[in-house]
């Protein structure tokens, strides 16, 4: 309970916390990303998606998740990576953003990672043209560099942030 609160707080202010945390990591292209495990509701195989008309291109549509209508975001499109045909490895990570539930389409899920506080770094300034607003930080474990994502910013639930993320 308290851990949950703490993690939510952290993701809200986008700061790397004092102590470490668990992250679910996944692949996009050849890059590795991580999201807080406490925000992950489930991982689903790819299933039929109904497009939502007049929506941004990265919104692939909606899926029937046991009766709930859940929007699906393709992170490749969102991050401007080349789109890929969905195959049997394509997975949807179902995450909770506030009271809302949404699905993220990623290439593949890698593993669950314990990231200690000393392994996390603040998002570096990547210069012009790189929007780092939805990154919480970068985790280094061995040779791997994992971009930690702030789901709230990413999903644009923060209304004031949404337009700048989208536009």
């Amino acid at each position: 309970m308290s851990q949950n609160n703490k993690s939510t707080d952290r993701s809200m202010n986008g700061q790397v916390g004092e102590d470490g945390n668990q992250f679910l990591t996944f692949q996009l292209q050849d890059e590795e990303y991580g999201i807080e495990i406490l925000r992950v509701q489930e991982i689903k195989g790819f299933s039929r998606i109904t497009p939502i008309p007049n929506s941004p291109r990265y919104i692939k549509g909606v899926m029937n998740l046991r009766g709930a209508v859940v929007p699906i975001v393709d992170l490749r499109v969102k991050f401007n990576l080349p789109e890929m045909e969905y195959n049997r490895f394509t997975v949807i990570i179902v995450v909770t953003v506030g009271a809302k539930v949404m699905g993220l389409v990623v290439d593949a899920v890698s593993d669950v990672l314990n990231v200690g506080a000393n392994e996390m770094e603040e998002t570096p300034d990547l210069g012009e043209g790189v929007d780092t607003s939805f990154m919480t930080g970068i985790a280094k474990t061995g040779e791997r560099l994992i971009t930690l994502l702030n789901i709230d910013k990413l999903a644009g639930t923060d209304e004031s942030v949404a337009p700048s993320v989208v536009a």
């Binding site: 039929r48 109904t50 008309p53 007049n54 029937n64 709930a68 209508v69 809302k100």
Partner: peptide, 27 residues
């Protein structure tokens, strides 16, 4: 009727969504 706003936001021209007999979502 399933509200799109529950997990998404309002979309012009769409009143909501529903789930069809075959499990698909329809607008």
């Amino acid at each position: 009727i399933k509200n799109l706003e529950t997990n998404f936001h309002k979309v012009a021209g769409i009143a909501g969504a529903t789930i069809l007999g075959d499990g698909r979502v329809a607008m």
